[in-house]
Design a protein around this nucleic acid. Structure first.
Lengths: 112, 112
DNA sequence: ATCATTGTGCGACTTCTTTCGAACGACAGG
DNA sequence: CCTGTCGTTCGAAAGAAGTCGCACAATGAT
């Protein structure tokens, strides 16, 4: 009946404080890191060990802050980084965050 | 007797999530913007209309997250950005945040 | 049609954040 | 020494955020 729809802020509505806040949460930053490495990803892959409601909470926050794009695919949920939108609005920001994260943390860590 | 001392994290202890969180607060981001424009600044200038305890709270948080350096000068308090430390640890991050902020917000706004 | 899976919304609980007043100590100046 | 200014600390209060169980709707598979 009603397919799942998601609201995404326009590119020019994306605000720096909200983006920084979204990325300041270790869990969400880890999700973003996976998205940057893998591209569009099944939402379950972003937090296999998390309760569903917790996962939804974080993906929603990332979406509403303009960091990720969400689309429904069957019963699943595909998440992708809004790389170009972020780059055009805040050039270099995402790259700096991810680079800084990479050199500080190791992807092979059990608990990043 | 006991001159005011402040603890600052080592450069290699500065963590991205804490920095992003510190910068995600509009008030603190505005303070950082002033620091970037003016260099070392009297703490009172960073929030002339704020209660002292509120100002201390934000400067402490910025200091503990590694964003600013604080030193006592007489009874006053001089704050400066740890530009080089941040640049060496997270290259381009601070610049990207400030540039993105500048193009999104106007310094002449009464309430940025 | 039935069933299992996925995501969402709701509500509750806990913890963290922010804000700010009041009291205190440190400092500079007269 | 006394006074006024500044910064810090403590505590309280309100608000925001994170976590998660549960019920429900939508979807795909059998």
């Amino acid at each position: 009946m009603s397919p799942r729809t998601y609201h995404h802020p326009d590119t020019d509505e994306i605000a720096i404080p909200r983006v920084l806040f979204a990325l300041s949460e270790p869990l969400r930053l880890a999700m973003v890191r996976v998205l940057a490495a893998q591209g569009e990803t099944d939402s379950l892959e972003l937090g296999p060990d998390l309760p569903r409601s917790t996962l939804t909470h974080h993906t929603s926050l990332l979406r509403e802050s303009g960091v990720v794009h969400v689309r429904a695919q069957g019963r699943k949920c595909l998440i992708s980084l809004r790389t170009e939108d972020l780059e055009s609005r805040f050039p270099g920001l995402l790259g700096a965050v991810l680079d800084g994260y990479e050199r500080t943390t190791d992807l092979t860590d059990p608990h990043p």
